[in-house]
Design a protein around this nucleic acid. Structure first.
Lengths: 256, 256
DNA sequence: TTCTCTCCGTCAACGCCGTTGACATAGCCT
DNA sequence: AGGCTATGTCAACGGCGTTGACGGAGAGAA
């Protein structure tokens, strides 16, 4: 059997399962998300999903080609969730910060799906809308196009990178997650000060900080640097009509 | 059987397998990395690993408690590869930049393994050495401890996040990778200028920039911002003994 | 209403997987 | 030379994703 899936809009017959449930792709996706949220990432198996649905596990294959296909469908929901209800304020820095935090939060909410989604380019409506929004914020703020594109790239990939990293931590099987957390308290907090003086000196700060995501701070650093480059670019443009463009590192803010 | 593992340094008897191979933790890790690199992340199963080693699959459990334990060893090995042969120059910014690029490069060299390993905290020798080195660079440069820890966290997670993201792109099956790349040229380059004006205006720059990793640029932004905060902190410390600190976060540096 | 077609839920089975208990033997220490 | 035990091997368990075959149920046509 090469393919037992019929696209959702073409479905006509809805037949209840033995336990009286009427299946649909949406119901299966929702149930999968609920399963992951309630019992952890490793709770998502086709057999358990079938049980949670009140259907034979193999019925899922009438709606999705594979578990990967199902997870991508879950992921597709995510992109929309990150943008849902957002409104621009006109302050480019505040807007970018809000978008970054929303992306991060949306992926944290469904880490298992985030792991698959973070590194794919879909080209679908939600994604292109986000790209357009972010680019628009940067260009309207006054970033020259080449710089806007570079900042866009850094911003998006940093957001997705952190999202995937933090999601991966959340998506770990329970014992592995516990082990990772223990490492900081059990291992790093007890390293010898003679062999690891810097860790020993900051152990308490470290264990406190590593509990949290490093993303908000890293995001602020990125926005700091972008703002500095924006100022340098506009000073350049205002002060001189002939060339003197911001070089690679934009090191010098040669103005008052 | 609760535990059949004996720590590597305490091993005395080395007994060849039926096929004449003398096992060791190092050999198993190397074989695992080779397996992953040759046949993808899914190729790492205990049974296949045993076959590749020329040993019974269960022999692996004489060296690692579980596959997760083995994976942590793989992760630490990658960290070790990144640090191998590196020497500090004394210039904190150049040193951090070099370390970041090395981490990124080491993971790119084994993208399939990087996907599995990038988000784990191992607490093992190579990892603690790297943490100690990076913290040392920051504290020696003059970052106050709380700031040093935050910058460390942002720096490391940024490196690992980008490494994982870029590794994922490299590790995609060939057709999927081609599809992802095509999206930028086929989909984004042809979006309607009326619905997506910013994308349309920068399409050429976008397709050019998205080919490359955004990490080097993002790293420079992070170092820019860190340098600015370092300067602000030392000016504060030098110019004023009473408080008046930087507004944003980093409020109290009641140290020194 | 009845007939027909085919969708789709179900069952059973396949071949993987990680892991573990029991066993045997080879290598080291005395 | 002999014993201890570390360590490689074997067999088995329960779980996994997936698929082929089947039959009952729903919808449209007459």
């Amino acid at each position: 059997m090469t393919d037992r899936v019929i696209p959702e809009p073409q479905r006509r017959r809805r037949r209840p399962t033995k336990q009286g449930v009427v299946l649909s792709a949406e119901l299966i996706v929702d149930t999968a998300i609920r399963l992951i949220g309630q019992h952890g990432a490793d709770a998502l198996t086709v057999r358990r999903l079938g049980a949670a649905l009140g259907a034979d596990p193999s019925a899922v294959y009438r709606y999705f080609h594979s578990t990967d296909d199902l997870l991508l469908a879950v992921a597709d929901d995510l992109i929309g969730q990150a943008q849902h209800g957002w409104q621009p304020t006109g302050d480019w820095r505040a807007d970018l910060r809000a978008i970054g935090l929303r992306i991060h939060a949306a992926y944290q909410a469904h880490p298992q799906a985030a792991l698959l989604a973070a590194h794919r380019t879909t080209g679908r409506a939600h994604e292109t809308a986000a790209v357009e929004t972010i680019l628009g914020i940067l260009r309207t703020a006054g970033f020259p196009d080449p710089e806007a594109v570079r900042v866009y790239h850094a911003f998006v990939d940093q957001s997705l990178g952190f999202a995937a990293l933090d999601a991966a931590a959340l998506a770990l099987p329970a014992p592995a997650a516990a082990a990772d957390l223990q490492v900081w308290q059990a291992s790093y907090a007890r390293l010898d000060a003679t062999t690891h003086p810097h860790i020993a000196a900051t152990a308490e700060l470290l264990t406190g900080d590593m509990r949290r995501s490093g993303y908000p701070y890293a995001l602020d650093l990125l926005l700091d640097a972008a703002e500095a480059r924006l100022r340098a670019a506009s000073h350049d443009a205002a002060g001189r009509s002939h060339a003197a463009g911001g070089d690679d590192s934009a090191g010098d803010v040669h103005d008052g």
